[in-house]
Design a protein around this nucleic acid. Structure first.
Length: 426
RNA sequence: GGAGAGGUGGCAGAGUGGUCGAAUGCGCUCGACUUGAAAUCGAGUGUACCGAAAGGUACCGUGGGUUCGAAUCCCACCCUCUCCGCCA
């Protein structure tokens, strides 16, 4: 959520920054805000008078005044009159606040100054590449889902029977490889100083709003209606909300979490895309990294977070590139994002496998997560960052394709061998 | 799911209609005493919004109601705990 004060006081800057992402009209928001403030001022003055009246009645009564005296009666009448006036303003003020809030909740975060200009993913800027492509795109290279089905380690058809399309069942070495990847990633991150968390994966609507999924993206989520619970689309949701409505101390920061969770997405609006394989499923596994940090360090922390995600790919010796997202492709809550794309030889292109974002105070304000610096008055919102480290299914896809051997077997990446207990899948 | 108890400041805990944003204790900060520390003593110590400031408003789980006035009374809801039932 954006800061209404900033919108009010630095309107032109906010407009310009939002304008880089799309078309946003702030005039009605500002008008509502001005109205609300005026009503609030009037109401709180009336309230002060009313409190005065109440106090003086109390004083006189204790002083032995007759409750039926004209003096007391006059005060009560005055109190009633004020109450009447206040009660007329209150609903208006409340309504205005609701309207303002609902507009604020739909405004995306402001892009950072360094975020490149652009309309779509085509305008993202490549920052660097890493690794040699193990397999030439020219060479006959099977897509991961064909490899998987041939080896009997994944099954899509039966998953349709069990659930529906866009689900997978992993079997034998496939299931073991997925588990090995999760363990390996978590081990890597905990070594790097992240605390492992296994959070609830059903989350309530307040949590979904706190991290930015609601109200705007309700269509993307799976919901258990009877209970006001949603299946988490990403561990970012429970991790953000772990500290919702809290005031942390500056000494507690930074807080670094990593978490493995299944993730659930409807993938509405992507019916034709990536219909086969592990790339776009309704349910997938992900290891997420998450940071709560001091505002001074969040951009620096984004570089570290991205490096921690890259480290997983490097350990697995998977070629990848790093993109900085342009204004048109930036996620709703993010101010600056690096995407990691892994090389998929069957497609002859790089595919997103991680997204690392600095949300600055956007989620902190939404979820009311603050911190206090000793000696300083008041509180500040924490900055939050999230990054996949990594999407597990897509990592498996990359491994199957990049590590396939001439005989159709899959070499197990060295760092996974101790988790798998074998060095080849055939 | 059934029965009962309860939700008050960082924590513990008092407060059952008025001067209560809230006693007291602990914690924390500053000061005094001390060679230093402990102990002791003194002062201070919530958050948000409005305001240049003085100051004002709101907040005692949440939302409504009664009243001139609500932490306190009434209604609804939420949550937590204990016991029973069910259960990985």
């Amino acid at each position: 959520m954006l800061d209404i004060k900033q919108i009010r006081n630095q309107t032109e800057q906010v407009k310009a920054a939002l304008g880089r992402r799309g078309d946003y009209d702030l005039s009605s928001l500002l008008a509502l805000d001005a109205q609300q403030r005026e009503i609030e001022k009037t109401r709180s003055d009336l309230q002060a008078s009313s409190n005065e009246v109440g106090k003086s009645v109390g004083q006189k009564m204790r002083g032995g005044a007759d409750p039926k005296s004209d003096e007391i009666k006059a005060l009560k009448d005055e109190g009633n009159r004020l109450k009447q006036e206040i009660s007329e303003l209150e609903p208006k003020e409340r309504e205005l606040k609701v309207q303002i809030e609902s507009i604020l909740l739909t405004l995306p975060n402001l892009p950072s100054d360094s975020t490149p200009e652009g309309k779509s993913e085509d305008d993202n800027v490549e920052v660097r590449r890493w690794g040699d492509e193990l397999i030439d795109a020219d060479k006959t290279c099977l897509p991961h889902y064909e490899i998987g089905e041939k080896l009997g380690i994944m099954n899509f058809e039966r998953s349709v029977k069990v659930a529906q399309s866009r689900f997978v069942t992993l079997i034998g070495a496939g299931a073991a490889l997925e588990r090995a990847l999760i363990s390996f990633m978590l081990a890597r991150h905990t070594d790097a100083g992240y605390t492992e968390v296994l959070p609830p994966i059903l989350v309530n609507s307040d949590s979904m709003q706190g991290s930015g999924q609601l109200p705007k993206f309700a269509e993307d989520g799976f919901k258990c209606d009877r209970d006001d619970l949603w299946l988490t689309p990403t561990a970012e949701v429970p991790l953000t909300n772990l500290h919702r409505e809290e005031v942390l101390t500056a000494e507690q920061l930074p807080i670094n979490y990593c978490a493995y969770t299944p993730c659930f997405r409807r993938e509405a609006g992507s019916y034709g895309r990536d219909t086969r394989g592990l790339i776009r499923l309704h349910q997938f596994n992900k290891v997420e990294m998450y940071k709560f940090v001091h505002p001074d360090s969040s951009f620096n922390e984004l570089e570290k977070l991205t490096a921690d995600a890259e480290d997983v790919l490097q350990q697995l010796k998977l070629p990848y590139r790093v993109l900085e997202l342009c204004t048109g492709d930036l996620g709703f809550g993010a101010t600056k994002t690096y995407d990691l794309e892994v090389w998929l030889p069957s497609a002859g292109k790089y595919r997103e496998i991680s997204s690392c974002s600095n949300c600055v105070d956007f989620q902190g304000r939404r979820a009311n997560i603050r911190f206090k610096e000793s000696g300083k008055k008041g509180t500040q919102y924490v900055h939050t960052l999230n990054g996949s480290g990594l999407a597990v299914g897509r990592t498996m896809a990359a491994i199957l394709e990049n590590y396939q051997q001439a005989d159709g077997a899959i070499a197990v990446p060295e760092v996974l061998q101790k988790y798998m207990g074998v060095d080849v899948i055939k």
